[in-house]
Design a protein around this nucleic acid. Structure first.
Lengths: 337, 337
DNA sequence: TTTATATGCGGAAACGTTTGCGTAACAAAT
DNA sequence: ATTTGTTACGCAAACGTTTCCGCATATAAA
């Protein structure tokens, strides 16, 4: 089968290349009849435009990138669905890039974007990320970027977040009101804005209840599950172990539950657990898990909507855009005795 | 900042464009010294090659696509990680495309690939997929494709699967040996090879235990969770409800558990449940879930390895390639009284 | 009739690479 | 002294589009 491109269409129809191109783009300069002829032959010959050529020429790739730490996290999975739904409406493709919480990978990915591979970027920064030069560098090349959930404070651009401080406050308060005296906060980073927010809410709630904030109650976890489990176990077999735990990241929940199981500690009797999580199965856990449920899908949708606004309207400025969509506290058995 | 490309590098260095290009590709035709000069200036000026231009010219995109039904499924999430790990080793990018179990979307995606957007495709077909013209058409364009997990029987190409029939047999046998008399099989398709395999294993196990196979015990579910839940409820409140359930898709588990909860049916006393699932939290469910655990990561790795083999060696034929990686039966409380 | 104004289309450059072919310089072999 | 070979590089075409111009022809306004 000979290759079928605009040129061959043009020859077949006795038209010029430019006319065919315009006809396919439904240009006003082309008569209805010609358009019809072109489109008919194109569909008949199953013409598929070469994306690389058009991107090269037009400097538009019709693709946006989603850069996230993990895909095996229900928050991100749902957010992707939200993003995809908007992208589809706009005729865009979505590329998903995983950093696995590694700053180095994040840098490599963004660097690659400088070649114009994508028109815009939606991003949730990795836990390791501290600096922001790689992000600024990308934006300096004129590629719009919108943060969702995990934003970098050092970069001036749109961010879609949830009310982390408030939710964390609510979670802490809920534990305190359920009788907890010593609450541990499991975090995955001490530099992420989102982590700081959640920590601040936690702190504030403690203070408002006349309890002192203790640095030792903040447990910094890693990306290594085995390690995290060990950390949980040593935390919980300590003589003055916490009687309440807040997991600020979904996957840490598993470690907590496993640790409790193996140590024969009862949730919620010995220790109450609450987690930032969108797990469908939270309701089905043993015991069912109290969660801060984030508006993942909506956050994805909003972030995507914003990036398209900026792509369509070049003088639309993302800088000031802030959207905070509230999370929900779903109280279940893991915090109720 | 003026645009920095091969041409500007060449001018700056008093070299020709071709020499710079070759130097950057570490061609043997270029002296070590020249290479060094080029690379140094390139990194100094932060040169990023234009991917569209090189793809257009070289007809290689250095990208592979992963086409899957959902990302909110731990099997696919883990498989993606496996694929990514191999892609990274080969200097390739991974694009993730979601069909949401829709044949129409799947067709649109593959059609788009015809423009050479990606060099190869890894795919798990959607539940709706019956025909295979869109797949054959893509492969006819010379783009290699490897199935993983869900394959189409109508297409002659490599496939990485797990031992579905055997696992399903083992699951059914396990339920029978645990005392079940009437086992329902929840499926998501009646055309998918994988579904047929799982059904065949189920059937065979029944026959081997001198039980009759009953079509009414096969429950075909959809992509609509609410609907599935209703279906589970009506299944379980039936007078002769099953005392054993095999969910062939992870997300159906939630519906089963929810239905049992709402109907006050005890798992495993009233009904035993086993699911094809890679959920981390299977162990933590109430009760903990017996699963057929699939080698998701390994399947992803193997599929990716195969596609790269074919990309590197054009006369390597994918047709005959078959790899079956065994799943594991993890017996937990949901099937043990 | 002349002058504007659309309308519909073609020519050709440009986007940033890769790559086949050509060739100058020099060394080695005849 | 000539041939052969090697090394290191340059020229220019090609990849498939998009898009800026230009240019007819036709119709309307002057």
């Amino acid at each position: 089968m000979e290759k079928i491109n605009i040129k061959s269409l043009a020859e077949e129809l006795n038209l010029s290349i430019s006319t065919v191109s315009r006809a396919l783009h439904d240009s006003y300069e082309i008569s209805a009849e010609t358009k019809k002829r072109v489109v008919e032959l194109a569909t008949k010959l199953n013409y598929v435009p070469n994306h690389h050529a058009s991107s090269l020429r037009s400097k538009k790739s019709k693709m946006i990138a989603v850069v996230i730490p993990e895909v095996a996290d229900s928050f991100f999975a749902q957010a992707i669905n939200g993003i995809e739904s908007v992208a589809q409406e706009n005729g865009y493709h979505v590329l998903i890039y995983l950093t696995h919480e590694s700053l180095q990978k994040e840098q490599a990915i963004l660097k690659d974007f400088q070649c114009g591979r994508v028109d815009g970027v939606l991003m949730s920064v990795s836990a390791e990320t501290t600096g922001a030069l790689h992000i600024k560098e990308l934006m300096a090349k004129g590629i719009p970027l919108v943060f969702f959930d995990r934003a970098s404070d050092e970069v001036e651009t749109a961010r879609i977040t949830t009310d982390d401080l408030k939710s964390s406050y609510a979670a802490t308060q809920h534990l305190l009101e359920s009788g907890c005296q010593k609450i541990a906060l499991l975090s995955v980073s001490d530099s992420l804005s989102i982590s700081n927010e959640r920590m601040a809410g936690y702190k504030q709630a403690l203070l408002d209840h006349h309890l002192s904030f203790n640095t030792a109650d903040i447990v910094l976890c890693t990306n290594n599950e085995e390690q995290n489990l060990q950390r949980m176990i040593s935390l919980l077999q300590n003589s003055n172990r916490p009687d309440g735990i807040i997991a600020t990241v979904e996957k840490l929940t598993t470690s907590v539950y496993l640790a409790c199981h193996s140590l024969q500690l009862s949730i919620p009797n010995h220790v109450k657990v609450i987690s930032f999580s969108n797990l469908q199965s939270a309701l089905l856990l043993n015991p069912s898990l109290t969660t801060i449920t984030q508006p993942a899908f909506e956050m994805g949708r909003s972030a995507a909507t914003l990036i398209f606004k900026s792509l369509k309207n070049k003088n639309f400025n993302l800088k000031g855009e802030r959207l905070v969509i509230p999370s929900r506290l779903d109280i279940r058995s893991s915090t109720v005795t």
